[in-house]
């Protein structure tokens, strides 16, 4: 059995970088994960929402721009008609069968790099690139947004342990380099 190579393979060497003193930014790549997209038709939102919550083992269906943490996966409402089931590891058990009359499913597990960003300066560093109001009152835990990072569409959500960023795989090294460079000013630890 062949193991897949993560999008940032060879780029994320663990260690302490940049300004000495306190570590302001913690960066890490989730190397193995799956993303499965569920898309509904306007009249089947409820039905597909149920499929999604079941797949993620989540308590409720997230509204647009929100995430619900399920027991099996995070369930992100990335568009009004689309959910992403995102989970660490390579679980194929998350992939539900869907009747085309109700909606569509699509595996996007290899299409993104998953970067976790934490630390006291995480908001500041992300705001060097993202034109999003990340203040906790505006962007509380479980908020999801699709935004632009150096003209590239990325998906961001805030979880219990900081920010999560899904970068398009082909752009991910370039964007990681920018995150890394910018984080140096705050004291960086790559996990």
């Amino acid at each position: 059995m062949t193991n897949p190579v993560s999008a940032l393979h060879g780029q994320t060497e663990s260690g302490r970088y940049g300004e000495p003193g306190d570590v302001g930014i913690l960066l890490g790549e989730v190397k193995e994960f799956c993303i499965f997209q569920l898309a509904a038709w306007p009249e089947t939102i409820t039905a597909i929402g149920k499929v999604a919550t079941t797949a993620a083992n989540a308590a409720k269906v997230p509204k647009p721009g929100k995430m619900v943490k399920g027991k099996k996966a995070d369930l992100l409402r990335v568009e009004p008609l689309k959910w992403w089931i995102v989970a660490e590891g390579r679980s194929t058990a998350l992939v539900p069968a869907i009747d085309a009359k109700k909606g569509c499913g699509l595996d996007l597990s290899h299409s993104r790099a998953w970067v976790k960003i934490n630390g006291a300066k995480a908001e500041s560093m992300l705001n060097h690139f993202l034109p999003i109001d990340l203040r906790p009152e505006s962007f509380p835990n479980d908020t999801v947004v699709t935004t632009a990072f150096h003209h590239t569409g990325v998906t961001l959500w805030r979880g219990d342990r900081g920010f999560n960023l899904l970068l398009p795989r082909s752009f991910s090294v370039s964007l990681w380099e920018q995150l890394h460079e910018s984080a140096l000013q705050y004291g960086l630890e790559v996990l």
């Binding site: 393979h9 060097h128 150096h150 003209h151 082909s170 752009f171 090294v173 370039s174 460079e181």
Partner: peptide, 19 residues
């Protein structure tokens, strides 16, 4: 210009087989 200079003037895309 910010950090959008040199190799980061534009975001570079790499294929999965780049390396």
């Amino acid at each position: 210009t910010g950090r959008n200079t040199g190799t980061h003037f534009k975001p570079l895309r790499r294929t999965p087989m780049h390396e």
